[in-house]
Every structure is written in C-alpha cells, then in structure tokens.
Amino acid sequence: MVRVSKELMQKAATLVSDFLVCPLSKQPLRYCQESNSLISDAIAVSFPIKNGIPCLVPRDGKILNEEDASKPDNDTNL
C-alpha cells in the first residue's frame, strides 16, 4: 500500500473541498482515509486515489455496498 504523507493528505482535502465534485451527480465528495478514496454519498460510489492522483472517471468508480455507505461517521467529512 502506498503511504501518503500528512501534508499531501491535507492538500488533497482542500482540493476536494474547493474544486472537485462527483463527476456523475455533481454532488460533493467525501475523503475516506481508511480506503484512501473519494466517496460520492449521493450515488454511493467510491473513486480511488492512485499515487496521490484522484481518479474520477466514472468507469474507475466502485459501487459501494449499502452497509459501507451508511456509516460515514468514522471518516472526515468535507
């Protein structure tokens, strides 16, 4: 697994809150530290972050199971 530095994480967080949205629903994204991915709660899809680059092509997204999507409490809300 790729270890990401804290600074980079912070940078990604501001990027997400300032510019990025879900490509399909255009709703805000949430950064999930555990799986190192961006999650669109509106359509329950997670987009991976590979090597510090968020991959927001719809085809790269993974549809989340309902149990995973329904407990966003542990993650940092953006």
Partner: peptide, 18 residues
C-alpha cells in the same frame, strides 16, 4: 499544481470554481 484523472464528458469540477 494538482493532478486529477477525469473525463471531459463527466467533468468532476465544482460549479463556478475556476
């Protein structure tokens, strides 16, 4: 500079942001 992988047909950019 920040890098994103995205599709122009599904632009993942917030409204009125750039």
């Amino acid at each position: 500079t920040t890098f994103v992988v995205g599709d122009e047909e599904f632009l993942p950019i917030k409204e009125s942001s750039v």
